[in-house]
Design a protein around this nucleic acid. Sequence first.
RNA 1: GGAGAGGUGUCCGAGUGGUUUAAGGAGCACGCCUGGAAAGCGUGUAUGUGGGUAUUCCCUGCAUCGAGGGUUCGAAUCCCUCCCUCUCCGCCA
Length: 426
Amino acid sequence: MLDIRFIRDNQAEVRQGIKAKQMTEALAALDELLLKDEEERLLRRDLEEQQARRNAVSRQIGQLKRDGQDASAQMAEMADLATTVKQLEERSRSLGNRVQELLYELPNLPHASVPYGESEHDNVVAAEHGEDRDFGFTPRAHWELPNFSDWVDLEAGVKLAGAGFPVFRGQGARLVRALSGWLLSELADNGYVEIQPPLLASHAAALGAGVLPDKEGQMYQVDSNFFLVPTSEVALANLHRDEILDLAQLPLRYTAFTPCFRREAGSHGRDVRGLNRVHQFDKVEMVSFTRPEDSFAELERMTGLAESLLDRLGLKHRRLFMCTGDIGFTQSKKYDLEAWSPGQERWLEVSSCSNITDFQARRLQTRAREGGRQGQGRPEPVHTLNGSAFGFPRIIAAVMETYQNEDGSVTLPEVLHPWFGGERLS
RNA sequence: GGAGAGGUGUCCGAGUGGUUUAAGGAGCACGCCUGGAAAGCGUGUAUGUGGGUAUUCCCUGCAUCGAGGGUUCGAAUCCCUCCCUCUCCGCCA
C-alpha cells in the first residue's frame, strides 16, 4: 500500500509508475481515489466539528445533572446533533472504506534504477555465471531420465490429488531432504533465523502480505477462512504485523522451508512438463526486514547469496534484471535467477528476489523507531524484501539435467553428498 | 465440540452510563539533587488522522479500552456478532 499523503503530493509520479508497470487498470482506481479522498477529508472536517460540539454539550449535561440542575435545553440540542453526527459518520465511513479499497488496488512503484519495459521480453540479463557442460552425449530432459519415475512419481500424485502434485519417493525424497538441509544451514550461517510457520494464512495475513487482492485467483482457499500459502513469504512477512520494532534490531532475516500451493490456472504445454510447474512445491524462502535506507543494499546481498549457492551447486545460471512491466504488484525492484536446463535447452526460474520497500510494511503495520515500542518519535514503516533459494522442483530439474550421466544416473554436486548420504541418484 | 472466566496504555492494574479529559503503580526519557551513582524529588511518556503553524518542535480537533455493529442526549461501562487467551470437560492423530 502506498502512503496516501505521498499519493496526494506526487500524483504525476504515481501515475507514471503505474504506467511503467503496465498496470493501466489501476489508473482508474487512482483517479477515483483522489476524488474520494478529497471528498472524505472535506466531510470529515465537518463531521469532527459536530463531534467536538457533541462532546462539549455532553460534558455540560453531565455537569448540570451532577449539580442537580435542569439540562433539558441541552438535551434537546443533542437530539438534533446526534442525528447529524450519525449521518455524517455513516457517509464518512463508507467513503473511508472505499478509499481503503482503492489504496489496496494501487501497485508499488518501480525504483528509478529499474529498466523500462512492457513485458518479460524486455528484461535485462545482468550477469551470467558458469560454463556449459560438455556432455559427450545428448542430455535428456529430467522427465526423460530412465529412472525419473522412481525418484518423482507423477502418476502417483495424480491418484492422490491430481496433475501437478508430484510424489517424491526414495532417492528423490532424500534429495529434497538433502537440499533443504544444506540450504537452511547455509542461510543460518548468513544470519537467517529458521522458521516453521503454519501453511494456512488468514484473510488478514494474506491482505497484509499483499497477496490479497492481487493473487486471490492463484491461491487455494480452505474452508472460506483460510488460504494455503502460495509462498512462505506470506507467513514470514506477517511475523511482525502490528509491531513497532527497534531500529537497532534491524535487519531481521528469516528463512523457512515449506510447501507452496498455487492454482497456476491457464498454464499449458512445455511449461508444465515434468517438474517445470506444479501446484504444490517446496521452497526455501528468505525474508528481510530492514531500515529504509538499507533495503536496496539488502536486495544485492540477498541476490548475491542466492547466486553463490547456485555457484556451489555448480549450475550455470544468470541474473535477470526485471523490467518495469514484469515486476509484480508489490515489488519496486526485482531480480530473477535462472538456472540452465541443458536437457530442455532453456532457462528455468529458480529464484526471485525483490525489494518491496515500505509497501508491504505499511499494510502489515510493521514499523520501527529508536527504542521500539517504548521509544520516542514517529514510527516509520520498515522495508521488507523476499527471495527464494530456491524453488525445489526446478532446482532439482536443473541438477538432474546438468549432472546426468549417459546411463541415466545422476552424480550429485559435492556440497550435497554429506546431506544426501551418497553421491548418486541411480 | 461443550461450560465458565477474561481481553483496559510499554507493562501491571482500577474502573458496572455523565466528577475518566482512562485512577494508581512499574518501566523508560529528561531535569534537579550528588564528587560519582543509587535513593529521593519534579516533568514527560500511546497510535492513527484532520486542521493551524511549520516541515519531523509547537497549538488544536477527532477516533481508538480485542474487532465490528447496536442502544442512548451521552458507552471502557449496557446489548448483539465475531476473534483471541486462560480453566475445566468431551472427542481425536
